[in-house]
Amino acid sequence: MTSYSKEYLQRDERQSDQPAGPGGSAGEIQIIHPLNGQQETRWCLLALLLILLAGGTGIWFNQTIPPEKSSHLELNTQDKAMLTSLSNAITEIRFLQQTDNLWPDIKTLEEMMIPPFHSVTADYQWQMPDRGCYLGIALQTRTTFLLVIPESSQSPGHIYTRQSDPGKHQSCHETEHWQLQITEF
């Protein structure tokens, strides 16, 4: 008697008031779930959802941020070559400046055959608006280059471009109208 479930006892009490059937047995109702795998399917789906959720969360939090596209990649082949050339020129100008304690002017850079100031194809007209500042105005293309090298060797030089005539924006100290392409180090 003690092993019967509460449900069974309640049903038993209800049924005891009624007359016994022809067989004499008081109607015992036992719920038996069919063995059709429905329960397992539910558990499997739940586990699958949990795994997907955990995986999705993991991926969401561990995504590699794609590197920011460098602005110099937008330049054409000739301008990219000019950028590398100017990047080398920074080191050579610094070396000359440290040797002579004097910023080399355009004529000196040409004489020293330092590109792009000295070039087989004269595509640029170079100016030196200030100490450590060199402005290259394109004669055929649209891109103008500005090279600014600080006096201190601890501060990096910068190379800027502009896709239109610099006009009045030729100051070496106001570079907000220019696109920074690369820094020296």
């Binding site: 460098s70 990649l73 590398t84 690369i182 020296e184 180090f185």
Partner: peptide, 8 residues
Amino acid sequence: NKDVPLLA
């Protein structure tokens, strides 16, 4: 290559 303007 730290200071080279790289190509994609």
